[in-house]
């Protein structure tokens, strides 16, 4: 339908229909106002001084840890499907020309010779600083705002900036194999970091470093002191609060954040890669 067709009676009907949807949406939102139970959020707020001060990180990887694991798989599904659709024409659309001809379409012509001086000299430093900024965000995820996904997106944007600014001579030239390796490293680390918790307490991805829940009477088993030290000590912090100084540790949360970051770098850069270079077994980024 085109916007021109909406003149006259049709336009009035469309406007009324949209108005009805709008009223329905906003009234359903208004009914929620002030009716949200604090629930598990308050529990985590109460426990904040015993683990990562960034509450969102502890909620995301402790309470919803398993959920987030599956979610990191979803982004791979996105990457794989977009590669399948645009890469080699596996879908086989009817009337589509042969794969060779599609692949032979001219790649994006980026004239780096006529690049503005500012871009030429400052794009590379900016790319390096963006990478460093991403690493700062992921390493300080548990103490201040930030996290693995944010780091992944920042580093992917550095990759895209590098590709867009320098074309085929991109300095940050992550190859297909490297990207797949990053993703595999990230997802593997994320999954395997759950093993210590599973061996000791039967809970996958139990935070053995911080060991929040062992005080509960219904909790099955205690975490050995050695595990608590190995995963807890490297991230121990002194929290200077109003009530005094508390020694808290985020446990395995920073490691999970790093894993998530690598996973996201792998997946999003794969998507960019497929869009920019296409996906074929011949050497990527090479002019035919």
């Amino acid at each position: 339908m085109e916007i021109k067709e909406l003149r006259g009676l049709r336009g009035v009907v469309a406007a009324v229909a949209l108005l009805i949807i709008f009223v329905g949406v906003i009234s359903s939102f208004i009914q929620l106002e002030g009716n949200v139970a604090r629930g598990i959020s308050e529990e985590y707020n109460k426990l904040a001084y015993r683990m990562a001060p960034n509450n969102l990180a502890s909620w995301l990887y402790d309470y919803r840890g398993f959920d987030t694991l599956i979610e990191t798989g979803v982004i791979y599904v996105g990457a794989v499907v977009s590669v399948m659709v645009i890469g080699r024409g596996l879908v086989g659309l009817k009337g589509m020309r042969e794969e060779e001809e599609v692949a032979a379409a001219p790649p994006i012509a980026l004239k780096t010779e006529t690049m503005p001086v500012l871009l030429k000299y400052f794009a590379l430093p900016v790319v390096i600083l963006l990478l460093a900024y991403g690493l700062l965000v992921v390493t300080s995820a548990s103490t201040s705002g930030g996290g693995g996904f944010q780091c992944g997106v920042i580093i992917s944007s550095a990759y895209l900036l590098s590709v867009v600014a320098y074309g085929r001579r991109s300095p940050l030239n992550m190859r297909k194999k490297a990207l797949v390796a990053f993703g595999a490293l990230g997802w593997g680390l994320y999954t395997l970091i759950g093993l210590p918790g599973y061996l000791t307490t039967n809970f996958w991805q139990y935070n053995v470093g911080a060991d929040l829940w062992s005080g509960l009477p219904s909790f099955p088993a205690a975490v050995p002191e050695a595990f608590r030290q190995i995963f807890g000590e490297p991230f121990k912090l002194a929290l200077h609060l109003e009530e005094g100084v508390y020694y808290a540790t985020s446990g395995i949360l920073p490691i999970i954040n790093v894993a998530e970051a690598f996973n996201v770098i792998g997946a999003i850069c794969l998507i960019f890669f497929a869009f920019v270079y296409g996906w074929s077994d011949s050497a990527e980024g090479v002019e035919k």
């Binding site: 959020s41 308050e42 707020n45 109460k46 960034n54 509450n55 929290l239 200077h240 009530e243």
Partner: peptide
């Protein structure tokens, strides 16, 4: 919802 230095443990759950 980030525990900042000097925050109070008892007030934080209500305010965050």
């Amino acid at each position: 919802p980030i525990l900042e230095p000097g925050a109070s443990i008892s007030d934080f759950p209500k305010e965050a």
